[in-house]
Design a protein around this nucleic acid. Structure first.
Length: 193
DNA sequence: CTATTGATTGAT
DNA sequence: TCAATCAATAGG
């Protein structure tokens, strides 16, 4: 695996990021996990937050690849994305699930769960376990500090399928996850292509 | 201005 | 199947 992920466009990056290790160092300690499930979003298609142009919420998605897009949704949840593509093109990869590697005790404390499989199995769950907040908005994951990426494992088999939780653009096969990985979010295992 | 919806989760 | 709960957006 090369030392930098391919973030040239969202769909490529969603596959390429699988197996990379996401690390977050905070005052409470270090947490890290392998990315096992990810989805691509881009301004050309209606399910993307950038479909209707730049707003205060999504503006970082139009900046350069490697920056972090955190958003608040459903009145109670945060989700995290890695920006991809050229500057000015609103696209990113939503991280949907991790396989916990480091700081599992800390993740359990943050999540109030002891079942390792329920720590990071979903976009809002992994944000909570990793201690990611809006203060991580526009962090650079290619800088080795704070929230960043490290080379991890090479996925044996990647499953390509349709995205979760959206009402438009449901036909696009823009979701990718590592086959037979027990940390992939439950919904993701239901539909296959 | 008000009303509705959503890249979710966890409980029923 | 539904509630929790708020930012963005559509509509008047």
């Amino acid at each position: 695996m090369s030392s930098l992920p391919d973030l040239s466009d969202a769909v490529t990056a969603a596959q390429n990021l699988l197996g990379w290790k996401l690390v977050h160092e905070t005052e409470d300690g270090r947490t890290a996990g392998y990315i096992v499930e990810a989805e691509a979003y881009s301004q050309e298609e209606p399910s993307s937050h950038t479909y209707r142009g730049k707003t205060k919420r999504n503006q970082v998605m139009f900046e350069h690849a490697g920056l972090v897009y955190v958003y608040f949704t459903y009145g109670m949840h945060y989700c995290v994305n890695i920006v991809t593509g050229e500057e000015g093109h609103g696209q990113a990869v939503l991280l949907r699930a991790l396989e916990p590697v480091d700081g599992i005790e800390l993740m359990m404390r943050r999540r109030q769960k002891t079942d390792v499989r329920k720590l990071t199995n979903g976009p809002a769950n992994l944000v909570q376990a990793m201690g990611i907040t809006m203060s991580n908005y526009s962090d650079d994951v290619l800088d080795s500090q704070g929230l960043y990426l490290e080379p991890g494992i090479k996925p044996e088999k990647i499953i390509k399928t349709t995205r979760i939780g959206i009402r438009v653009g449901v036909d696009l096969p823009w979701r990718f996850y590592i086959a037979d990985n027990q940390f992939v979010s439950k919904l993701a295992k239901n539909r296959n292509l």
